[in-house]
Amino acid sequence: MTRSNKQQPPRKHRWLWRTIFTLGILLGLALVFNEPIKLFVVERLSQSTMAHIDRDTIAKNEKKRATFDFKGVKALDINTVGNAAITRNLHPIGKIAIPSVNLKLPILKGLSNDNLSAGAGTMKADQKMGEGNYALAGHYMTNQGILFSPLKNVKKGDTVAITNMKKIYTYKVTTKQIVNETQVQWIDDVAGKKLITLVTCASPTEGEVDRIIVQGELQSVKRANRQNLKIFL
């Protein structure tokens, strides 16, 4: 007696279900590892950029055109980060360090998505270190040690140092506030004051409308040398 094939699903159906099952597993793995991969790439990109900043690089990048349209800034997804890592279209013009929260990042000219995938972007054209209100923006990530996430833990009295590899400008944090994204007056120059203003989202939630503002006043300007540049290493 021959065995009936009625209880066996057709071969093409078995192939279809196996394909769906495999795709489901691959999608699940992508969702699980997407965030860690993104954070890994961002951190490596930031560190690599920091390691290759020198006076000549800064001089060249300061002459390049840049975009300062904050509305054009996108949330960091794996595609944005991947593009930044591949194209390396970055324009570093300095470094920033906040020792109290272990923040060390490259400063890049403009608010391009590539720049903000690696460090802090300048918010105004032609701003200069040690003059006016030097404004920088950066992304808040889920990992507290990545990009501008550590700003959440900055306190009044902390030190913020920036350098163009010629001089080191040291600021003391005087203000920390959470404001609405429409309160853009925080990056304006203030008569008689030499400030630094750091801006990031108040959380990593997409669509976040609040911003963390950290502002400090200039305390000292020193010529950069091998010894005092260690703060950025």
Rank of each mutant, 00 (worst) to 15 (best):
W186Q: 01
V190D: 10
V179I: 14
Y169I: 04
A191M: 06
G192V: 03
I168F: 12
V184L: 12
K194S: 15
V179R: 13
D189M: 10
K193L: 10
I178W: 00
Q183H: 12
V179Y: 12
I168P: 04
I196Q: 11
T163F: 08
M165H: 05
K166H: 15
K176L: 10
T174Q: 13
V173E: 12
V199F: 11
Q183D: 14
Q177Y: 03
E181N: 11
V199S: 11
K176Q: 13
Q183G: 03
K193F: 03
I196K: 13
L195A: 04
Q185E: 08
G192P: 00
T170A: 13
A191T: 08
L198T: 05
I196A: 10
Y171S: 06
Y169S: 06
M165E: 07
V190Y: 02
A191N: 09
T182M: 07
I187E: 03
K172P: 01
E181W: 08
Y171V: 03
K172D: 01
I196V: 15
V184R: 13
Q185M: 07
W186T: 00
V190G: 04
K193Q: 15
D189F: 01
L195S: 02
K167F: 04
T182D: 06
T163R: 07
L198I: 04
A191Y: 07
D188L: 11
L195E: 04
V190F: 01
Y169W: 09
V184Q: 11
Y169P: 03
I178H: 00
W186N: 00
A191L: 07
E181C: 03
Q185V: 00
I168T: 14
T175C: 11
I178Y: 00
V179H: 12
V184D: 09
I168E: 09
